[in-house]
Amino acid sequence: MGKITFRPSGKQINVRAGQTLLQAARAARVYIPQRCGGHASCQMCKVIVEQGELLPHSPLELRKLTEADLASGVRLSCQARAGRGDCVVSIPASKLKSVVAAALERQKYELEDEQ
Rank of each mutant, 00 (worst) to 15 (best):
R63F: 00
K3I: 08
P59N: 14
Q12I: 06
G37M: 03
E105W: 12
G37D: 06
Q43T: 14
S77M: 11
S94F: 09
K46M: 12
L96D: 11
A82M: 10
R7M: 09
H39C: 03
E105A: 15
K97C: 01
P92L: 15
L54E: 11
C42F: 13
S58R: 15
L60P: 02
K3P: 00
L21D: 07
A25K: 13
V74I: 12
Q115G: 07
A93I: 04
C45V: 08
Q51D: 11
D69A: 10
G38K: 15
Q115C: 00
A103Y: 10
G85M: 06
V99G: 00
R106W: 07
G73T: 10
G38I: 07
Q107P: 01
G38Y: 09
A103S: 04
V15M: 08
E61Q: 13
M1E: 03
V88L: 07
G85I: 03
A71M: 11
L60V: 09
V100H: 12
D69Y: 01
Q19N: 08
A25D: 05
V30P: 03
P8I: 08
V88C: 04
G38T: 10
Q107N: 07
A80L: 04
Q12C: 12
E67W: 03
S77V: 07
Q115S: 04
Q43H: 11
D113N: 12
R84L: 04
E105P: 02
L104N: 05
L22R: 15
P59I: 04
V74E: 02
M44Y: 04
I4N: 02
V89E: 09
E114K: 14
R35W: 00
Q51G: 00
G38C: 10
A28F: 14
R29D: 14
E110C: 01
Q115P: 00
L60W: 00
R26C: 02
L22N: 08
R75Y: 06
S77K: 10
N14T: 14
L70Q: 15
Q34R: 14
K3Y: 05
L60S: 07
K3W: 02
G2L: 11
S72D: 08
L104K: 13
A68I: 07
A40W: 09
S77G: 04
C87W: 11
Q34Y: 13
E114P: 00
V88R: 13
R84G: 04
M44W: 04
V88W: 06
V99M: 11
L55S: 05
V47C: 12
K108R: 14
R63E: 13
A17V: 06
A68G: 03
V49F: 04
A27D: 06
C42A: 11
R106H: 07
G18M: 12
K64R: 12
R81L: 03
A24H: 08
Q79T: 02
S94A: 14
T66P: 00
L104G: 06
L65K: 02
G10V: 10
T20E: 04
K64V: 10
G73V: 12
V15H: 06
K64D: 01
A82D: 01
